[in-house]
Amino acid sequence: NDEAKKEAEKLWKNNKSEDEIKERLERAGISPDEAEQWLQELR
């Protein structure tokens, strides 16, 4: 999970869309709710 979150953070810094980041997190096995929460922390 931490690995996926690091990846999400990297994508965020590269200005990827939130949808793309969420999709990537969900593919890594993170629930949509958790993915949404993680994005809010990044904002």
Rank of each mutant, 00 (worst) to 15 (best):
N1Y: 14
N1L: 13
N1S: 12
N1G: 10
N1R: 15
N1K: 15
D2A: 12
D2W: 13
D2P: 08
E3W: 14
E3H: 09
E3G: 08
E3D: 10
E3V: 11
E3C: 15
E3N: 10
E3I: 12
A4D: 03
A4N: 04
A4G: 06
A4W: 15
K5E: 01
K5T: 02
K5A: 01
K5Q: 03
K6I: 07
K6L: 08
K6W: 06
K6Q: 07
K6N: 05
K6G: 04
K6D: 06
K6F: 05
E7W: 13
E7F: 10
E7H: 06
E7Y: 11
E7G: 04
A8D: 04
A8R: 02
A8C: 15
A8M: 09
E9H: 06
E9Q: 05
E9M: 06
E9A: 05
E9D: 04
E9S: 03
K10C: 15
K10M: 12
K10T: 08
L11T: 00
L11P: 00
L11K: 04
L11D: 15
L11S: 07
L11F: 04
W12S: 14
W12D: 14
W12V: 14
W12F: 14
W12N: 14
W12E: 14
W12L: 14
K13P: 15
K13L: 13
K13H: 12
N14Y: 03
N14W: 05
N15T: 04
N15W: 01
N15C: 15
K16A: 15
K16D: 09
S17H: 04
S17E: 04
S17M: 04
S17F: 04
S17P: 09
S17V: 02
E18W: 14
E18I: 12
E18C: 15
D19H: 10
D19E: 14
E20K: 01
E20Q: 07
E20R: 02
E20A: 04
E20D: 05
E20Y: 11
I21D: 00
I21N: 01
I21S: 00
I21C: 03
I21E: 02
I21A: 01
I21Y: 04
K22F: 07
K22P: 00
K22W: 04
K22Y: 05
K22D: 00
K22M: 11
K22E: 02
E23L: 08
E23I: 08
E23M: 09
R24E: 09
R24N: 08
R24P: 02
R24M: 15
L25K: 00
L25Y: 00
E26Y: 13
R27G: 05
R27Q: 12
R27W: 06
R27S: 10
R27D: 07
R27K: 10
R27I: 09
A28S: 07
A28P: 01
A28C: 14
A28G: 06
A28F: 14
A28T: 03
G29V: 01
G29R: 00
G29C: 00
G29Y: 01
G29I: 01
I30H: 02
I30T: 03
I30Y: 07
I30D: 02
I30F: 11
I30N: 02
I30C: 13
S31C: 13
S31G: 08
S31F: 03
S31M: 08
S31Y: 02
P32E: 07
P32N: 10
P32Y: 07
P32Q: 09
D33N: 10
D33M: 12
D33L: 11
E34S: 03
E34D: 08
E34T: 13
E34V: 14
E34A: 07
E34L: 15
E34M: 14
E34I: 15
A35E: 00
A35R: 02
A35I: 15
A35K: 01
A35Y: 09
E36A: 07
E36L: 08
E36D: 09
E36K: 02
E36Y: 04
Q37H: 06
Q37I: 07
Q37C: 11
Q37W: 06
Q37P: 00
W38Y: 08
W38E: 02
W38V: 06
W38N: 01
L39K: 00
L39N: 00
L39I: 12
Q40N: 12
Q40L: 06
Q40C: 12
Q40K: 10
E41M: 08
E41I: 06
E41Q: 10
E41T: 05
E41G: 04
E41V: 07
E41R: 10
L42Y: 03
L42E: 01
L42G: 00
L42C: 10
R43A: 08
R43P: 03
R43L: 09
R43K: 13
R43G: 05
